[in-house]
Design a protein around this nucleic acid. Structure first.
Lengths: 220, 220
DNA sequence: CTTTGTGAAATCCTTCACAGCG
DNA sequence: CGCTGTGAAGGATTTCACAAAG
């Protein structure tokens, strides 16, 4: 039934969702594609095309019903089901992610923090006890974790991923600054902080020196 | 001279750079497009097209000289010049970013940490004293910061950006979960952690239930 | 014989423009 | 009259395939 939603659309649906939840909290009942576009930072035509992809119908002359759209997008994105998440690598970044509330809301349930360092194991971070990375395999399998966040050093990322995938993880958010290989049925997204800075460096120098004459869209 | 490098290429050059630096440290002298592709997780044809964009010439039958390519990419990305960076919002994430070494290497010089909370101002994080966000404007201007990292709550992000831009910042890395408006000459990249998780949720459920029959490429 | 550099084809995504509905 | 839904046009990006170079 979910007839192959384009990747670009999938990447934007969460943006709409966030804007819609804000509308909902402000007791706004309907919103036009133009309004949603402004709140999400995209083009209005794209909003309409995206929403038409998932069969959600707005009302001509009026717009979209906010609560209806929230339900629809949540359902399509699978946010109406709980998902168990583990975070591997509890360095500075891992700690911040463990405490980040955007990670714990919306159906994501952090069921384990793992690190290989003896000094960290047993410590309590954000209300959870850090466990030994050696116990990762069984813990992941037992707790039914399907999503993993990799915040390990680059050198350990691939090995960690292999173990996770072998134990049932099918989606990975990779913060380690390295490319990881994974089977086709495993979804991988990477967040690469130093790469982002370097990209900014390019555009910074581009705008700085010559005539201001180039575009930049921050795509996903 | 920099003849408009496609955005997609710019986003990949840092990946090549990282792989090349690793080769360099392993004393590898030349690398083929196939090798570089494998290390970066992209297609070999794309590597060649990307590199041809910046006029870097490989040697047919041999490949690319590693050190030469590192210099070329560094130069194109503007990584051979120092850039002053400020981090605004020293919560869990801001703290992690301040300590993250990927942020402090490669010509990026963190020249200020700012937060609005009295409890934080004056504290030392990663060897730097947190300053009052009220002093942001003059500090940014005085220290010549051109890149800013936004790790504030969503509600303060836009206001912060406006002040930064008014004082000379032309590139922004936004971690706040909100869309920010900025003038055309300002480059903005966003890193949206909860959005990434939601995207993974979609593909996780896609692979889980029906036949495994869909693609996913983690583009930037 | 290996590997680059690149036209051309194919695919994906965005933007435009407007018919049609409420 | 306002706004959605969508065919069609326009761009951008990726992939293919191969001639040319070392």
């Amino acid at each position: 039934m979910t007839r192959s939603i384009p990747e670009a659309t999938v990447a934007r649906l969460p943006l709409y969702l966030r804007a819609l939840v804000e509308c909902s909290e402000a007791d706004i009942v309907t919103i036009s594609s133009t309004g949603l576009a402004a709140a999400s930072g995209v083009n209005a035509a794209i909003v309409r095309k995206d929403l038409s992809q998932l069969g959600a119908f707005g009302t001509r002359g009026v717009g979209y019903r906010v609560v209806e759209l929230i339900d629809e997008i949540s359902s399509v994105m699978g946010l109406d089901q709980d998902r168990a998440v583990v975070i591997v690598g509890i360095g500075n970044l891992g700690r911040a992610l463990a405490a980040y509330d955007g990670f714990t809301r919306r159906g994501f349930d952090v069921v384990g923090l793992f690190d290989a360092a003896d000094a960290l194991v047993g410590q309590t971070i954000a209300g959870m006890v850090v466990e030994d990375a050696a116990d990762l395999d069984t813990a992941v399998a037992d707790r039914g974790a399907t999503i993993a966040v990799i915040a390990t050093p680059a050198a350990h990322a691939q090995e960690t991923v292999d173990r996770l995938v072998a134990n049932g993880v099918t989606a990975i958010l990779n913060f380690a600054p390295v490319h990881i290989d994974s089977p086709e049925h495993v979804a991988v997204r990477k967040v690469d902080l130093s790469t982002e800075l370097q990209i900014l460096s390019f555009y910074e120098q581009l705008y700085a020196s010559p005539g201001p004459d180039q575009q930049l869209a921050t795509g996903t």
